[in-house]
Amino acid sequence: MLVKNKTNHVFLFLEIFRQEGGVQSYVKDILGAYLQLEDIYQADVFLLRDSPNCDNPFASERLKFHYFQSNSPTTGRVKLALSLLWFLWKKRPEHVFCGHIKLAVLTKTLCELLGIPYTVLTYGKEVWEVLKSQERQALASSSSIWTISRYSRDCACAANGIDPNKVKMLPCAIDGNKFTPGLKSPELMTKYGLNNAKVLVTVTRLWSGDIYKGVDITIRALPQILKVFADVKYLVIGRGDDQPRLAKLAQDLGVSDRVIFAGFVPTEELIFHYRLADAYIMPSQEGFGIVYLEAMACGIPVLSGDNDGSADPLQDGKLGWRVPHRDADAVAAACIEILQGDDQRCHGTWLREQAIAAFGIETFPLRLQEILLCSSSITKS
């Protein structure tokens, strides 16, 4: 009788649990899908910025976690490097999956020293421009590169001389059972002052380094939208140091009474906030944009930028509006079209069906297994 050998992997990430965001959500989907694969797959997960006190639903016999959060970033990196070196030397895993370009040079150094193949995971802007020489070498020396969208693949390859055939696609996925259509919550409508209003929603972090998310452009579009829909309001969900600037912009434009900053909303409450929307608006530059899938799964029409990875979830405009991401006039015109509701892309049931058919979470484990098989072989004896 044939006995399947265990397939030992190592995953290396900056963080998963300390902060919430699109990348963290994506990584959690990878780990969840990994646990759905055959039990021959087992991995150790090294986390630079997370601590053992985090709420980790993935820890198990097949996924063992190692934490290196430290008050000193340098100390944390040194401890991670030494622990990883010892682990790789002692265990000799079949393959290492480096979860961020910022960890790629370390991964290359250790893996090449010990003759272990490795893969680098990429997402968006962090690889769209020309990288440092050592980071480019780490990508070139990897056995493969994963990314989440055609746009991220094309940008990374063009900027850093990468062979596109080396890049494997593992797009984001949406759980259609978690994000579903539903009535607007009367309690939340009252809480945010949205009764009798047409509601635009954005879910994003409000960091001063992330103005590309387009919240300021949507605020600039509001005066034009209000000329057609006098009852429109804009609900911004998220937190960050850029909120004071955005609030002042709304005040300067005379629309401060139309912009509501909801602050941080826990993941489990997001669905009820998506359902408040008549349109999800984020004219951004995303590596993919999981939020668009979340909104569409709730039956909400969406608007994105037209020069980024959102082309994939919006299926090149088939499922939503794509506009120049720093053009307030274009955002205003598209928002008016969406709120008028005459386009098929506003039909919630159809929109949800299309989004889930292309990116449903049910197919994610199969995609992961295929890409793992491309990166490392499973031996049998």
Score class of each variant (00 low, 15 high):
Arg322Ile: 03
Lys132Tyr: 13
His273Pro: 05
Asp329Leu: 11
Leu131Ile: 02
Gly240Asp: 06
Cys172Pro: 07
Ser141Tyr: 11
Asp329Ile: 05
Leu12Arg: 02
Trp128Ala: 02
Gln134Cys: 10
Ser304Lys: 03
Gly214Ser: 10
Leu222Val: 08
Lys125Met: 12
Arg239Asn: 14
Tyr292Trp: 08
Val331Leu: 04
Gln24Leu: 05
Val302Ala: 15
Arg258Glu: 05
Leu368Arg: 09
Ala262Met: 09
Leu37His: 02
Lys184Ala: 15
Arg92Ala: 13
Phe87Val: 00
Cys98Asn: 13
Ser208Gly: 12
Ala333Arg: 14
Ala330His: 08
Met189Arg: 15
Ala104His: 05
Lys28Tyr: 11
Leu372Phe: 15
Ala138Ser: 14
Tyr274Pro: 05
Asp175Pro: 04
Leu366Arg: 13
Tyr34Ile: 00
Ala81Met: 11
Gly124Thr: 03
Asp44Thr: 05
Leu114Gly: 11
Val203Asn: 11
Leu235Ser: 08
Arg136Met: 12
Phe46Gly: 04
Arg153Val: 00
Gln36Phe: 06
Val259Ser: 06
Ile225Leu: 14
Arg136Tyr: 10
Ile30Asp: 02
Cys111Val: 00
Phe272Pro: 00
Lys380Glu: 12
Ile290Asp: 06
Lys102Gly: 10
Ala197Tyr: 06
Val201His: 07
Asp329Ala: 14
Gly348Ile: 02
Lys79Val: 00
Leu47Pro: 07
Asp312Gln: 11
Cys346Val: 00
Arg275Ser: 09
Ser377Ile: 00
Leu85Pro: 02
Leu121Asp: 03
Lys6Ser: 14
Gly32Ile: 03
Ser142Thr: 01
Arg220Ser: 15
Asp241Leu: 04
Ser133Leu: 13
Trp86Gly: 03
Asn195Pro: 03
Phe46Gln: 04
Trp321Lys: 01
Lys28Gln: 15
Phe65Lys: 02
Ser149Tyr: 10
Ser83Met: 03
Lys91Thr: 08
Gly309Leu: 04
Val201Asp: 03
Ser310Val: 01
Cys157Asp: 06
Ser284Met: 06
Met296Lys: 06
Leu113Asp: 02
Ile356Asn: 01
Leu35Trp: 10
Lys125Gln: 14
Val167Ser: 06
Thr74Ile: 13
Ile361Asn: 04
Ala81Leu: 09
Lys178Asn: 07
Thr122Cys: 15
Lys91Pro: 06
Val96Gln: 10
Arg275Ala: 09
Thr363Glu: 13
Ser133Glu: 14
Arg345Trp: 11
Ile148His: 09
Arg345Tyr: 12
Leu235Gln: 06
Cys374Val: 00
His9Arg: 12
Ile217Trp: 14
Cys54Phe: 14
Ala279Thr: 01
Tyr123Trp: 14
